[in-house]
Amino acid sequence: MASQGTKRSYEQMETDGERQNATEIRASVGKMIDGIGRFYIQMCTELKLSDYEGRLIQNSLTIERMVLSAFDERRNKYLEEHPSAGKDPKKTGGPIYKRVDRKWMRELVLYDKEEIRRIWRQANNGDDATAGLTHMMIWHSNLNDTTYQRTRALVRTGMDPRMCSLMQGSTLPRRSGAAGAAVKGVGTMVMELIRMIKRGINDRNFWRGENGRKTRSAYERMCNILKGKFQTAAQRAMMDQVRESRNPGNAEIEDLIFLARSALILRGSVAHKSCLPACVYGPAVASGYDFEKEGYSLVGIDPFKLLQNSQVYSLIRPNENPAHKSQLVWMACNSAAFEDLRVLSFIRGTKVSPRGKLSTRGVQIASNENMDAMESSTLELRSRYWAIRTRSGGNTNQQRASAGQISVQPAFSVQRNLPFDKPTIMAAFTGNTEGRTSDMRAEIIRMMEGAKPEEMSFQGRGVFELSDERAANPIVPSFDMSNEGSYFFGDNAEEYDN
């Protein structure tokens, strides 16, 4: 993207840094990872977990959730003011799984939030270390993106479920800051804005008074975040219109849905970061690795190297396929839920299948599930090659597409044709070009129609051997075009429920 120079890199967003050079960025990201790792080690000690239990991804998720809940100030305040039966607002906890007599047992633990905050700050040299908290939120978000298709949420806001490739980060909490905003897809931002506008339509006082002023500035800020994701002048001009509207209503909703559809071809720039579970960072720190000293990046080879040398386990339900569970977590670790499966298959070195073909449910185990038949197995999170994460949407291309997802959002900077089903997408653009945004709409449609099938995206960008740390010898991959490109292809993934 041309304006790259004016933006802070995501590592800076990730670490609240002012302008830093590459070495400083690597050190501050490393410091953040160190903090998460030290916190995780301490929690495993508190909970008396064995090494194996500490490497269980379900335990990692519970521990991450506990610290996120302990620092969720708004919710904590709300819980104190609106006490609900049987919930102690000062405590947080969740299921911890232990191996007892050759069987997995679930144990519900409860801790004072104050105590968890103390352990977290102690692991982070006394700081609140917001960057580390956001990092864990993005890992949870990436896992949700890989596990669930947001059909219901899309339909509720009037969008087409086939636009799911635009929904990265749709389950990120509001408090995820600049680093969170960077990884949100165009569809996620559109959905947040539509929800806001709908509230304004239904509630006369939404934009009024002292609160209304705050609401208005939040609305304009979200519009600017979305505008910054678009790469064409016409899309940005249309966002200006939406932002400046005196009284946002149905016309703005129409414009936003139009823009979301246009992003299936004229893709937005959305950041991709490899955020790993805390149970990967903990053992690495415990083994003596100093992330701050060595430096770390979320968008280069580092996460690949770390996963190459990590042992992570997962509980497996009786009829689940461990290899499929591994694929789910591998995609989440690489922030690749909406990437082209052919690119992923090449990088991973084994075939990556669409969601609907995987015999696996989510990673988390519900409290009512029976533990008797639970097994555990090693997650295979290694890769054959590594590639640089991208934040450009890439230019655009036609490809055989599917009944489910009709476009992709690249996660890796790797040369390819970008699949999208042009006739299906263009069919949504018939007729409606009147109104105050008509010239911009016409211009956007013209650009979409001009998108050429034979153009290559990320020209000359390749993948790298894991021994090639400096990215000196790019390998331009070859793809098996007979395979499906979309992950949520004609899909039956479970729906995400809060």
Score class of each variant (00 low, 15 high):
Val343Met: 11
Ile119Ser: 06
Ile116Ala: 05
Met13Arg: 01
Thr157Pro: 01
Ile316Met: 15
Arg236Asn: 06
Gly180Val: 03
Met32Asn: 15
Ala251His: 05
Pro89Leu: 12
Arg470Ala: 00
Lys422Glu: 04
Glu244Ile: 11
Arg221Asp: 03
Tyr296Ile: 06
Val29Thr: 09
Thr437Trp: 01
Tyr148Thr: 11
Asn250Ala: 13
Gln20Lys: 00
Tyr281Glu: 14
Met426Val: 15
Leu172Trp: 00
Glu46Tyr: 02
Glu210Ser: 07
Arg106Lys: 11
Ile116His: 01
Glu18Thr: 12
Met159Arg: 04
Glu292Ala: 08
Phe71Arg: 13
Lys422Ala: 11
Asp160Asn: 12
Leu328Ile: 13
Val414Asn: 01
Pro354Tyr: 13
Asn125Ile: 10
Val312Glu: 06
Ile197Glu: 03
Ile96Trp: 07
Glu11Val: 13
Leu193Val: 08
Thr15Arg: 00
Glu494Ile: 12
Pro354Ala: 15
Tyr111Asp: 05
Gly431Lys: 02
Ile406Tyr: 10
Asn21Thr: 12
Thr151Ala: 07
Glu380Gly: 02
Val299Ile: 10
Thr350His: 11
Asn319Arg: 14
Asn247Ile: 06
Val312Asn: 13
Arg389Gly: 00
Val109Asn: 00
Val363Met: 08
Cys44Asn: 13
Val299Leu: 07
Lys91Trp: 07
Lys229Val: 05
Asn144Asp: 05
Ser359Leu: 11
Asp101Ser: 09
Ile301Met: 12
Lys452Gln: 13
Gly126Arg: 13
Arg117Asp: 03
Ala182Lys: 01
Asp34Lys: 00
Gln308Gly: 14
Ala129Gly: 15
Thr151Asp: 08
Ile63Asn: 01
Asp16Val: 02
Ser438Trp: 04
Leu193Ser: 15
Glu339Pro: 06
Lys103Arg: 11
Met191Ser: 06
Ala337Phe: 07
Asn250Pro: 10
Met105Val: 09
Ser69Gly: 14
Gln235Asn: 03
Ala403Lys: 13
Ile194Val: 15
Glu80Asp: 12
Leu143Asp: 01
Arg361Gly: 08
Arg221Leu: 11
Arg470Pro: 00
Ala233His: 11
Gly86Glu: 02
Val155Asn: 06
Tyr281Arg: 09
Lys103Cys: 07
Met440Lys: 05
Val363Asp: 10
Thr188Gly: 11
Ser402Trp: 00
Ile201Met: 13
Arg416Ala: 07
Cys164Leu: 03
Ala85Met: 07
Pro318Thr: 05
Ala428Tyr: 06
Phe291Cys: 13
Ser413Ala: 07
Thr130Tyr: 03
